[in-house]
Design a protein around this nucleic acid. Sequence first.
DNA 1: ACAACATGGTTGACGTGTCAACTATTCCGC
DNA 2: GCGGAATAGTTGACACGTCAACCATGTTGT
Lengths: 148, 148
Amino acid sequence: MTRWLSDDEQRAWRAFVSLQAKLNAQLNRELQAESDLSLADFEVLVHLTDRDDGRVRAFELAKEMLWEKSRLSHHLARMKRRGLIDRVECDEDARGSYIELTPEGRRAIEHAAPGHVETVRRLIFDQLTPEQVQALRTISETILAQLH
Amino acid sequence: MTRWLSDDEQRAWRAFVSLQAKLNAQLNRELQAESDLSLADFEVLVHLTDRDDGRVRAFELAKEMLWEKSRLSHHLARMKRRGLIDRVECDEDARGSYIELTPEGRRAIEHAAPGHVETVRRLIFDQLTPEQVQALRTISETILAQLH
DNA sequence: ACAACATGGTTGACGTGTCAACTATTCCGC
DNA sequence: GCGGAATAGTTGACACGTCAACCATGTTGT
């Protein structure tokens, strides 16, 4: 016996699904137009600038970002082609490699960050009350806890 | 002057971003494993079964689903290759075409739907109070209103 | 010491999405 | 009617994601 969704649940579900689709599209569009980066590029660059030395082992990057190793490998290949990052071989473990921020990569993220934060604020946080921000967090964390 | 995000906002934002990534991945994985359909396939099939005659003009489909026409065209080509839908030429407008559910497409959606609803219920609605469901809807609709 | 297994990473095939350019029709103003 | 704009849809190029197979190196148990 399938338990279908109630009307309220359906409406919430449809709104949430639309939200994801449109929000992602618009965040990507604005970041691309403004800074010629995708959200994925941006996220990689953020994780690299979080380190003082601007370098991380690839597998750590994958863990922090919850990305599959293969996705990361493909993406880094594209970013390297565009000169945003570099691969440096790893002395401690001959299998691995360090991913390094290039000067160009640093310029890119520094140029992109303020505008992107502005966009996120304008589209999301300026629209919500502090209670809604808390609720969004709680809801997200609750559902996340179910996902492996 | 960039207005950065507060700690609370950052935490909410990170949770929300993770949620989207993981939830989509898992919904896709389960639907794929269970019924050999992607979420996109599923959505197209749902919109086709909503019509009594199981056929829709492509541009209507695109409007209902908020998809670009080119995305739809590519996707329908793949679905047609798999025998889930068919294109039928349109008498009223020689430019257009009808998209038709095939018997195989109907079987596919009928097989997939109960399990998929079950998954959505289990992962999301079983985890949330009715108040949270309302909040999710309100938040989603509020942000959506900002997006063009 | 060495076989078996685990880990770090790449690759190729293919599905998915966007953008811009293109074809073919239909619509609309004059 | 007729020329130009709008509409319906396709196509090609390319970025993005997943899966499964693969290679090389490290680690572990006996």
